[in-house]
Design a protein around this nucleic acid. Structure first.
Length: 261
DNA sequence: CCCGGAAGGA
DNA sequence: TCCTTCCGGG
């Protein structure tokens, strides 16, 4: 059975989380789709965890910890998603072990089928409306903040960060880990509602303003004026950071934007 | 069950 | 690059 994650996942009492969904559609589009990226295993796991696909995988006792309850079933679901009919847990778990070096996951030792997300690697990019005034005045502060975050985590190699935005709490990125978010033992990870991917070829409105979801939205044309501003904007979900060449690459749904720093 | 090396595909 | 496949070893 497929888990579409379209249903409401209002496991939180806070209204901020009640309409949370995990990832935008573009994150799951097949590789040939323009502007989309192949779904990655950890996206897939979070999707299943988030929508309570209870049979194959579920949250564990600690924050970020999850237990694979039915390894072969999980492998079959993953194989279906990736078009790999011969996927099994042996192969899936090898992929999970590759995440150790990337610091996306680590193993909970001694607990069978139990892994843990390194949510300290999760960056919450604040909702522009909640940004501190200084960030409004100087958008490049977001880069500074990111560098601080990187230093805080002793991290110069991590390539993939899960980025969420529209976080309802102010000053989130200035707070130390662990993340200042509700910590459900079970239920969805409180990622932030996804902004719908713009249709390919569709012109975005030139003006900044609120989009259909009521969030601040700016046109991609704004990036041309000052690309640094993009950190504070909507429409991106995953951020890849490459320290080599002193460049930072932000991957937008339909755009690869390289920022020189 | 886990772990990582090696090779290779798309 | 991110796995997929295979595998020897603990």
């Amino acid at each position: 059975m497929q888990c579409s994650c379209n249903s409401s996942v209002g496991h939180f009492s806070s209204p901020y989380w009640s309409r949370a969904v995990l990832f935008p559609d573009w994150a799951y589009k097949p590789a040939w789709s323009p502007g989309s990226r192949q779904v990655q295993l950890w996206h897939f796991l979070l999707e299943l965890l988030g929508c309570g696909e209870g049979g194959a995988i579920g949250w564990g006792g600690e924050w970020g910890e999850f237990v694979i309850r039915d390894p072969e079933r999980l492998a079959r679901l993953w194989g279906e998603r990736k078009g790999k009919p011969h996927m099994n847990y042996d192969k899936l778990s090898r992929a999970l072990r590759y995440y150790y070096n990337k610091r996306i996951l680590h193993k909970t030792k001694g607990k069978r089928f139990t892994y843990k997300f390194n949510f300290s690697k999760l960056i919450l990019v604040n909702y522009p409306g909640y940004l501190p005034p200084s960030s409004h005045q100087n958008p490049s502060d977001s880069f500074t903040v990111f560098k601080k975050f990187q230093k805080l985590n002793n991290d110069s190699v991590t390539k993939s960060y899960l980025v969420s935005w529209n976080h309802p709490l102010p000053h989130t990125f200035l707070l130390p880990k662990p993340l200042p978010v509700p910590q459900p033992l079970h239920g969805p990870i409180p990622f932030i509602p996804a902004v719908a991917r713009p249709e390919v070829g569709q012109r975005e409105p030139r003006e900044s303003g609120l989009n259909a979801n009521g969030w601040l939205h700016r046109s991609s044309a704004d990036w041309d004026v000052n690309p640094h501003i993009s950190w504070n904007l909507s429409d991106y979900k995953y951020l890849n950071v490459n320290d080599k060449n002193n460049e930072k690459e932000i991957i937008f749904p339909n755009t690869y934007l390289t920022l020189s720093h």
